[in-house]
Amino acid sequence: MNRSIDKVPELCESQEDYCKKFIERIIKTNREVFILSCLLEKQMCGYDLIKDIFTKCDVFLSQGTVYPILYTLEEEGLLIAEYSRGDMRSKKYSLTPRGREVAERDIEEFANALEQTSSLIKR
């Protein structure tokens, strides 16, 4: 089949689109790992986390999917929450020492799993 040159941008676009959708799916099904990864860098509130992931990955995680994760991680003792001085509007979350261990382990396992998946389909 002959492909006309003017179809190339279209192909590139659809590849980009596929990639974007794939990344979005990966992030949405592994929200917890991405949230832990953000919190490894600095303490954040739910709003900061959603904004940070959107800025870095162009993926919007809705509030109803992020806040329950924060609350249960806090209950499990992996996060600690505190109001910052002079800003009672946002509750900032940071990792506890155990949370940091779990975050590092989960991120490594996640990265390994992605790598293995990728090597499985490469010829």
Partner: peptide, 29 residues
Amino acid sequence: IFDYQDMRKEWIDRELDFSTMTEEVIDFY
């Protein structure tokens, strides 16, 4: 127990769809 206080404070300037969010919260649990 899940409450919306943090969400309402932090997203004060945004319109939030609480019925959809409640469905998402249920899905999570």
